[in-house]
Amino acid sequence: MSREENGQEVIVCRCRDVTEREVKEAIAEGYDTMELLKRKTMIGTGTCGGRTCLPIVQWILARETGRKIEEIRLPRERSPIVPMPLKFAAGEKVGDME
């Protein structure tokens, strides 16, 4: 018996609380690229910047659609690379980093 049949939810995105079931449902509804899944389920939009969920979802998407993992393009990376407080972006000095 799979985890889902067992009634267990598997979290694939910890920032946005997205489950494996939600991702699979979205794929079944036709959201079958990483860009579309990102907008539909919010995977990849949390504070980790997709470092946890994107490879997992990429793998689920490949498996669900019978594609090779290399064929699944990741969403475009956007600035900032790590979440940055507005005050730093506004030019406030970070101070003594040591």
């Binding site: 910047g49 956007r78 600035s79 900032p80 940055m84 407080p85 507005l86 972006a89 406030e92």
Partner: peptide, 11 residues
């Protein structure tokens, strides 16, 4: 207070 809030994405 947004000074302390972090930017996640920019497009």
């Amino acid at each position: 207070s947004l000074k302390h809030t972090r930017i996640l994405r920019h497009w």
